[in-house]
Design a protein around this nucleic acid. Structure first.
Length: 825
RNA sequence: GCGGGCGUGGCGGAAUUGGCAGACGCGCUGGACUUAGGAUCCAGUGGGAGUCAUCCCUUGGAGGUUCAAAUCCUCUCGCCCGCACCA
């Protein structure tokens, strides 16, 4: 017997798979297609355990489904644009393109060492011109459809990254990549109108039955739909000028005692012009506008309001209330103006107390008599409308509609839905991205680059002398261009696109990677889409996963694809921890896939990562657990090598008795469990434990038959099927074992075994006897025993009879094949 | 504050429909083989008591429903995650 040499075996089969092009996928209408996709990596240098986990999960599924006769597509590529390439370029004095290319080569080799079954013919690289050409083309599609526009506004600026960020890319006021504080900056930037799709992005979450609840909830929160009314207040001092507010509580309109504008509100300046308060207010406004999001939204930040000297007129009762400017009102939400109803909103209540503003109760809780003086906090519950003119006596829940309807008829308001989500800011002031295909002409203004001129290529020679890679504005050859319309002097847009654009459609490109006349071929995209199983980290719950859904819907509307949701089923895998901390180089607790491959082999690493925890839960890396998995694979290896020697030289001496039947029953039970655990539940950990049990059963059988010898036919069949079951998890060892056992072709081209229900049947079953719900004995009865017989048998049992002596049997409950419960007093 | 999730041996975790709690693995204990064992094989391993072919307790805690609860309901404690001055 030879020892298990993982390195040698793995190298051998990786070469064979590559030579035979084993994982190539083509359209085949005779089979059901299945698209298995894991989020493609950013090629940052080395693969880490998080990568190994996602890709191991995907590979098990892909290999399993192929054996289940699905036509599986399982592609891989590179999310290759992005800032780290620029930073590395400066540090190492190397062109970002070259740095990226060498990382890709490295990571690709690492993926190959792990034995993942990708169709490398479909490899895509988002930073190559033949890919970003179509990212640009899609931008132009958005532009044509009115979904891309440029506007000047306050945007999130990250100083460390020297670029702006989308709202989704700011976490608690910090840059998602480098964690530095994000500042507001007024710039003219390109946006995509994702808000036009807010309603559909929200509603269609309902279709995504196979997505984890938490991801759907996170997207729901992010989109943040709220229903209410928009109400117009006239400005007393400027007849004809109105302030529009959004509220979810139009029923409290009669309780308005003041109005607050955001500092950025366009009416602030004209309103205060010429008042005593002008200087103070403008000073306050400029101060607030310089604050970072952290400063402005921190818990300690006091709510400050300043009177503008002007008044708003309540449309329902003509009352005049002071207009203030407040630091807590956000221009980007609703209308940037808030009506203050202190009696029925806790924040307004506190604000009113601070500034001595009147509190007027307009919703009275049943059986109580609240007044502004006696209230300790705002009343936000249901009640009866009071102090509300003709609406008095109405239930406030009805009042919401009635008041809005009234305003609508008077032309002073309307029903309105507001979303928290903002348009997607896609401009980036960086070099290493896809250039935005827009030209600014002195004569014609904004001119989209004609499709035939795509791609707008990045300058290849990069200046690497400073402390950062210069943006495209630095390259005059790039900037200066003739206008495509009039031929006159023009210049290019010098910002590049957010890399999330590239990853919003790569799953479509995988269906037709070489296509040079369109982003993808209709026939192919229609065959392969949607992605049947998508796997990736939870960190993209509202970034990539929201953007990709948006792109898909736009392409659906443009009639380029037939699906309006890209990912049918989603698995958000947990993180990899070690010693209670997230595994990372900086914490010094990192174990790399390379280490594992070297020490134990890829099969051991893959097996452990799948066995240690169910995929959606966090996983704690444990060296001894890895050794346990390696031990298991060696146990399998010994069975195969010793078994094959026995098959060749030994005589088949044993007949077919109880032991053989039992072994076969173990086999079929394992087939059943492993199949359903992979296919229905994704519980790879329990699938693996079922294979371990089967292997233990084979060892037990061999030991039981040590003297008289095994039934080789049964043993061999069991062993072969065990190897097939193991193939998705430990593909190299399975392949080698298959060869040793004399199997035909590759183990991976075998049909997945089906279990025979007859094999699972037993003649006799053990049944638990309970008295009042407690286990008091066990009996073995024929499997087809009737309930009556079962009760008879139970009561006939000596011990049970003893315990029931002198008691009255109230009733008996039987669960066939499982238990008898005797209820006795 | 709103929303989602989790809590089971020394550890990772099983228990799929309410039906034997603790599968499988790690660790630990004992034995076999051996010059040796950090290899391999076999046996044991939730806690407590014991008259050792037995009983009691046990799924964060307290109640409840049920013949039967890790699983369903109510309350409660703890932890993790998302959103949050959102009008």
């Amino acid at each position: 017997m030879t020892t298990y040499n993982a390195t040698q075996i793995e190298k051998k089969w990786q070469n064979i798979w590559e030579e035979k092009d084993s994982f190539r996928s083509e359209i085949d209408h005779s089979k059901t297609k299945y698209y298995v996709l894991e989020m493609f990596p950013y090629p940052s240098g080395n693969l880490h355990m998080g990568h190994m986990r996602v890709y191991s999960i995907g590979d098990v599924l892909a290999r399993f489904l192929r054996m289940r006769d699905y036509n599986v597509i399982h592609p891989m590529g590179w999310d290759a644009f992005g800032l780290p390439a620029e930073n590395a370029a400066i540090e190492n004095n190397v062109n970002p393109a070259h740095w990226t290319a060498s990382n890709i080569e490295n990571i690709k080799n690492q993926l190959k060492l792990l034995g993942f079954s990708y169709d490398w013919h479909r490899e895509v690289n988002s930073s190559s011109p033949d890919y970003y050409r179509w990212s640009q083309w899609l931008f132009l599609l958005m532009y044509k459809r009115g979904l891309a526009y440029k506007k000047k506004s306050d945007v999130n600026w990250c100083n460390a990254c020297a670029t702006v960020l989308a709202n989704e890319q700011v976490e608690k006021g910090l840059c998602w990549r480098c964690s530095s504080v994000v500042e507001p900056r007024e710039l003219e930037q390109w946006f995509l109108k994702i808000t036009d799709y807010a309603e559909r992005l929200l509603n269609d979450l309902g279709q995504l039955e196979q997505w984890p609840e938490r991801v759907k909830v996170m997207q729901q929160n992010w989109i943040g739909r709220s229903e209410g009314a928009e109400i117009a207040f006239q400005v007393k001092e400027f007849p004809g000028e109105e302030i529009r507010t959004f509220t979810t509580r139009p029923d409290t309109l009669f309780g308005v005692t003041y109005m607050v504008l955001a500092p950025e509100h366009p009416l602030v300046k004209p309103l205060v012009a010429g008042t005593e308060q002008e200087e103070e207010v403008l000073d306050f406004v400029s101060r607030v506008r310089q604050e970072t999001e952290i400063e402005r939204t921190s818990e300690e930040a006091p709510k400050i309001g300043l009177f503008t000297g002007r008044h708003a007129v309540n449309p329902v009762n003509g009352e005049e209330v002071p207009i203030l400017v407040g630091n807590y009102v956000l221009m980007a939400y609703g209308t940037g103006a808030v009506m203050g109803v202190p009696a029925h909103d806790q924040r307004d209540f506190e604000f009113a107390h601070k500034y001595n503003l009147p509190i007027r109760v307009v919703i009275q809780p049943e059986g109580e008599d609240c007044t502004g003086q006696t209230m300790q906090e705002a009343y936000t519950g249901e009640g009866c409308m009071v102090n509300s003119g003709s609406f008095n006596g109405l239930k406030n829940t009805d009042g919401i509609n009635e008041v809005t309807e009234h305003l609508k008829q008077q032309g002073q308001g309307n029903f309105r839905v507001t979303y928290r989500i903002r348009d997607w800011l896609i401009s980036r002031q960086r070099y290493w991205g896809a250039p935005i295909p827009i030209i600014y002409c002195e004569q014609c203004g904004v001119v989209p680059v004609p499709e035939s001129d795509l791609p707008v290529e990045l300058p290849r020679e990069v200046e690497l002398s400073g402390d950062r890679v210069p943006s495209l504005a630095h390259y005059s050859d790039f900037v200066n261009v003739d206008c495509p319309d009039c031929g006159g002097r023009a210049c290019r847009e010098t910002d590049t696109m957010d890399t999330f654009i590239c990853s919003s459609w790569y799953f479509l490109r995988f269906t037709s990677p070489g296509c040079d006349h369109a982003p993808f071929e209709t026939e192919k995209v229609d065959y392969w889409m949607p992605v049947d199983q998508y796997i990736g980290g939870i960190e993209h719950a509202v970034l990539h996963l929201l953007y990709a859904r948006f792109f898909t819907k736009v392409l659906y509307d443009a009639e380029m694809i037939k699906v309006n949701e890209p990912f049918r089923r989603l698995l958000a895998q947990g993180m990899v921890y070690k010693d209670g901390a997230k595994m990372s180089k900086s914490k010094g607790n990192a174990v790399t896939p390379d280490d594992i491959v070297k020490q134990y082999g890829a099969d051991t690493g893959r097996l452990f990562i799948l066995f240690a925890s169910p995929p959606e839960k966090d996983l704690d890396w444990n060296e001894q657990g890895v050794e346990g998995c390696h031990r298991f694979l060696r146990r399998v290896w010994r069975l195969v090598t010793e078994g094959s020697e026995a098959f060749m030289v030994g005589k088949d001496t044993a007949g077919h008795g109880e032991d053989e039947t039992s072994l076969q029953r173990n086999l079929h039970a394992a087939i059943k469990k492993v199949s359903s655990d992979i296919e229905e539940r994704f519980n790879f950990n329990t699938a693996i434990s079922a294979i371990m049990e089967l292997v233990n059963a084979i060892y037990a059988y061999r030991q039981a038959k040590e003297k008289e010898g095994c039934n080789h036919k049964v043993l061999r069949e069991t062993l072969e099927k065990t190897i097939i079951l193991l193939a998705p998890f430990a593909p190299h060892l399975a392949e080698e074992s298959w060869e040793i056992l004399g199997g035909k072709d590759s183990v991976h081209s075998q049909h997945w075994p089906s279990f025979d229900a007859k094999m699972l049947e037993v003649d006799r079953v053990e049944v638990v006897i309970q008295i009042n719900g407690k286990v008091r004995g066990r009996i073995t009865v024929p499997a087809n025993c009737t309930e009556e017989q079962l009760v008879e048998e139970a009561r006939a049992n000596d011990r049970i009879g003893e315990m029931l002596k002198g008691k009255e049997i109230v009733k008996t409950i039987t669960v066939p094949g499982k238990l008898v419960n005797v209820v006795a007093r």
